[in-house]
């Protein structure tokens, strides 16, 4: 039965392809392929339908499909184009086979349906698997990249370390922050750590709780923690939520925090050359002449 249908389809492949191309053309608006040029769209359609026929001819050999899926994923074609295309192919083929045959009863129809499904399903499976595998790969890469960026630590000068935080802080990240903060204090031998939250969009009770915990832990291992970069709206939320941050010092900007940190480590910033002296010297030299 199956080989008979296969014969019909392969013999009339020209007609089926034509019908398929016509149908897929009407779907162009829906599957987000409008931005693709007509030439490329048509050549890809040709290639797609060739791949389907090769797969039918070779009885489930997947090489051609895999090659095609790799290519189309790299080009960034939407998955909906693939699923729509195969859906249309199934409909067109079933339609065509039924129209070719004189005797049509329930058994016959079910035979047609199952054999067409047998052709189409492996292709769908491979393509969808490849697509989702590709997406998962991208997501995992991005997760690693995010993790690398989530808790950076910068030793600015001896004894002072800065941790600039950007983006929302959740429980996982807070744990990472605490670990890297404590480890950093030990490795850099820091007396003072500045946590800069300028880039944290929202500070709610949870985030504040994590920050307080980190600061307490830093105090336990023998360093001081200063929270800097508190924007006006953050200050408002903190007070409105009734969060008690009085136990550890806070500053509005990193600059102020850094100066406080210098004070704690008994240092200060001095100008190497004071400009006032320069002017006085200039006046003196003019008077001397």
């Amino acid at each position: 039965m199956n080989s008979k249908f296969e014969g019909i389809v392969l013999e009339n492949s020209e007609k089926i392809v034509e019908m398929w191309l016509e149908e897929i053309g009407t779907l162009r608006k829906e599957n987000r392929t409008e931005s693709i040029s007509i030439d490329l769209y048509e050549s890809t359609n040709r290639e797609f339908v060739d791949v389907i026929f090769t797969s039918i001819k070779s009885h489930g050999s997947t090489n051609a499909v895999e090659e095609f899926s790799e290519k189309i994923i790299n080009l960034g074609w939407p998955l909906s184009y693939i699923t729509d295309g195969l859906q249309v192919f199934r409909r067109v083929t079933i339609d065509f086979i039924l129209r070719q045959s004189e005797r049509v009863d329930t058994e016959y129809i079910s035979n047609v349906l199952s054999s067409v499904d047998e052709w189409v399903e492996p292709i769908i499976r491979i393509l969808v698997n490849d697509y989702s595998g590709n997406w998962e790969h991208i997501v995992s890469l991005q997760r690693v990249a995010l993790q690398e960026l989530s808790a950076p630590l910068i030793p600015v000068i001896d004894g002072i370390t800065i941790m600039p935080l950007v983006g929302t802080v959740d429980t996982d990240r807070a744990k990472l922050i605490m670990e890297s903060l404590l480890q950093g204090v030990i490795t850099h031998n820091s007396e003072v750590v500045l946590i800069d939250i300028t880039g944290v969009p929202v500070v709610d009770t949870m985030v504040a709780h994590h920050l307080i915990q980190a600061a307490e832990a830093v105090r336990l291992i023998g360093a001081k923690c200063i929270l800097v970069g508190i924007r006006p709206e953050i200050a408002q939320t903190i007070v409105n939520l009734g969060i008690n941050l009085t136990d550890f010092p806070t500053k509005s900007t990193l600059k102020k925090g850094f100066l406080t940190a210098l004070e704690i480590t008994n240092r200060k910033v001095v100008n190497v050359k004071s400009s006032e002296n320069d002017i006085e010297k200039l006046i003196e030299s003019i008077q001397g002449e």
Binding site: M178, E179, L182, E216, A217, L220, I221, G222
Partner: peptide
Amino acid sequence: VLTGIQPAVAMTLI
């Protein structure tokens, strides 16, 4: 004065 508390210890205590 307590000195040299390890990071892991500090985290557990907290």
